[in-house]
């Protein structure tokens, strides 16, 4: 099959866009794993909870702002409104994460790791049906955001027919990446989290409350998952089982990057996103298999993942 350069570029961009979404999910997962030592199986459900919530929030906020008005100002207002909706959605997920950690997980840190798997899996199942109770069985979607943002010309300016919304995701995703690294490198809270990850006992000795750090980290993970859900939902629809696939791919991402490494999660997410996207055009049956094949390969060559574990740098 002949692949034109344009098609290859579009697929790569699609991959990068998906990679950024994946990074937002995987980064939360990897930070939780690196600090709490818990593999949160319910993380995909947090992502999908974000997607469902976002549809309501989008509707509400766009109801206030109205459809994008003409001119640059009107468009800018609309884009800001969408961003605000995404942030609100993510903020709604904060207490959910806090609750999860403080009520459920905290009781069983000293137990066998198996129980944490069972617990987070139980939470996965419960969240699945909570969504079913609230939003029903059928998938729901919001078209307004996707189509409105796509009317803004971006890629057309360089002669490429590519949805503006995807460009928007890539831009916002980059901001999130930069923000996360800034948070962990520069802010006091971020440094405290890193200190806890590197040496929990030492951190306690210098007066860090690990309980609070744990809650904070879990809430941060939920925030990022909600953010990802809100960013991912406009082009598609929110479905009950939408959390499964990103969850499994996030496992791949964090193993490729190294358990607990934020930088690794970033590289891994883009790698998985792009390769998966290429496979869709080159060899469709390989789409599901490719990420796992890469993961197995990387583990055989470099068992600790590309960037090892969490350490002095984020």
């Amino acid at each position: 099959m002949a692949v034109t350069p344009t098609a290859a570029l579009v697929q790569t961009l699609n991959g990068i866009q998906f990679g950024f979404i994946l990074f937002m999910i995987a980064s939360g997962l990897t930070v939780i794993l690196g600090i709490l030592d818990v593999l949160n199986l319910a993380h995909g459900e947090l992502f999908s909870l974000g997607a469902y919530t976002a549809i309501g929030v989008f509707g509400f906020i766009i109801g206030i702002v109205g459809p994008p008005g003409g001119g640059v100002v009107g468009t800018a207002v609309f884009v800001l409104a969408v961003l605000a909706a995404v942030l609100v959605t993510a903020a709604i997920l904060l207490p959910v994460g806090t609750l999860f950690e403080a009520v459920f997980l905290r009781q069983i840190y000293d137990r066998d790791q198996v129980y944490q798997l069972v617990l987070t899996f139980a939470l996965l199942l419960i969240l699945l049906d909570v969504k079913k109770v609230i939003w029903g069985d059928s998938s729901i979607r919001t078209d307004a955001v996707y189509s409105a943002i796509n009317t803004i010309p971006t890629s057309e300016l360089v002669g490429l027919n590519y949805p503006t919304y995807n460009v928007f995701v890539i831009l916002v995703g980059s901001v999130v990446v930069v923000g996360l690294f800034w948070f962990f490198e520069r802010t006091k809270t971020g440094r405290i989290i890193r200190a806890t990850a590197i040496d929990r006992e030492m951190a306690t000795a210098i007066g860090v409350s690990t309980d609070r750090v744990f809650t904070l980290v879990f809430a941060l993970g939920a925030f990022l998952a909600g953010f990802a859900g809100a960013m991912a939902v406009p082009p598609t629809s929110a479905t009950l089982e939408m959390g499964t696939n990103p969850l499994v791919l996030s496992f791949v991402v964090i193993v490729i990057g190294g358990l607990g490494s934020l930088r690794g999660a970033f590289v891994g997410a883009l790698l998985v996103g792009v390769i998966r996207s290429w496979m869709i055009t080159l060899y469709p049956p390989g789409e599901i298999a490719a990420p796992f094949a890469i993961m197995a390969l990387i583990l055989l060559v470099k068992p600790e993942g590309l960037f090892g574990t969490w350490g002095e740098t984020a």
Binding site: A122, L125, I126, L128, D129, K132, D137
Partner: peptide
């Protein structure tokens, strides 16, 4: 129809 919830609660 909420059997996942049931299983989840049993696991909890």
């Amino acid at each position: 129809q909420y059997y996942d919830f049931l299983t989840g609660v049993v696991l909890l």
